Amino acid sequence: MHLNDTKGYKLFRYFNIFVMIMIVVITFVPFINIIAQSFSSERFITAGEVFLIPKGFNVETYKAVLSNDRFWIHYRNTIIYTAVGVAISMFLTTMLAYVLSKPKTRIKGKGFFVGYAVFTMFFAGGIIPTYIVYNNTLNITNTMWSVVFPLALSIYNMLIMKAFFENLPTALEEAAAIDGMSSYGIFMKIVLPLSKPILATMTLFYAVAYWNSWFQAFMFLNDWTLFPVTLFLRNLISGATATGEAAAAEAGSTQIASNVRSVSMFLTVLPIILVYPFVQKYFVSGVMLGSVKE
């Protein structure tokens, strides 16, 4: 009897299907609820009657939020931070991962650098020392770089990319080196073209991280014109700043805070949702190829 025909395997498969369906439901239902609230009126939201289907359909809050100049300023900032941050992060990650993927015979002290990198995943300097360094030493507080630099290099992403580079055929690089190609030429013309899956995966990882980041801006930015849209959303949810209060006021007297928050949350996550389908085919293969060492 084949393994796939056994009762135990069938039970295991059905259990996996059930678990995955539950995960999808748990993940998807709150998002649908947010969309439903964003298109519902105050009376039904206050009464707690809105779940998955909008009631009292209206788009007034969308009009109010989209006509809010501050919202678009923050949205523009987020796009800039994400674009610049992803470019810097991909450069640093690919460079470090490629170097550390080489054998110890070629890279002296490789074990030390890998251990040092992994050490930073578990131990950090803390919020106060970080702020002192950014404010007094680097003097980059209240600038774009205070938002970009903290996320510039993810050791987790670097290790995945390192494993991917280690699985590439070494014969290709050796043949190119025999033909006289430099290390930079090998990296640019051979390694990177073969690494599209992992590059697309890491780009998505970093883009989501930058797009969703708000804590760095909350710590290091004082000028509201530099705030990303996620910090704008945080202010709406907490109601702790003038930005959130002004945005809620501009949404109109017929709408309540939960309706404004739902609209802002949906508009914030929409770009990532639209981008993901285009990189999904690279995402799965990139993670699998970079996570398993042959």
Rank of each mutant, 00 (worst) to 15 (best):
F165Y: 12
Y81V: 13
A176F: 03
Y116V: 15
W145Y: 15
R76E: 09
M158K: 05
N77K: 03
I178D: 07
L100M: 07
Y184V: 14
V147E: 05
F123M: 05
M144H: 14
L194Y: 13
T203M: 13
Y116E: 07
T94C: 05
M181T: 08
G125T: 10
I186Q: 07
K110F: 15
M188K: 11
I132Y: 07
T93L: 08
G115N: 06
M188C: 15
S183V: 12
F122T: 13
N142S: 02
M90D: 00
Y116M: 12
N136H: 11
L194R: 11
M90Q: 01
K104A: 11
F122S: 10
T94R: 04
I140Q: 10
A207E: 00
M181F: 13
E166S: 13
A200P: 04
A177D: 04
A171M: 15
Y184W: 11
S89A: 11
Y81N: 09
T203Q: 00
M161L: 09
L92A: 10
A163C: 15
T120A: 02
F112V: 07
E166M: 12
Y81Q: 02
L192Y: 03
A171C: 09
Y131V: 09
L100S: 09
V148Q: 01
V86E: 00
P193G: 04
L100I: 03
A171S: 08
A200E: 01
V147I: 13
A176H: 06
K162Q: 12
L151H: 06
L204I: 15
T170I: 11
I160W: 03
A124K: 08
T203E: 02
K196D: 00
V99T: 13
F123K: 06
V84S: 03
N157W: 01
E166N: 11
N77V: 00
V133D: 15
I80N: 05
L192E: 02
I132N: 04
V84I: 13
T203K: 00
S182F: 03
T78A: 10
I128A: 07
A171E: 14
P103V: 01
K108M: 14
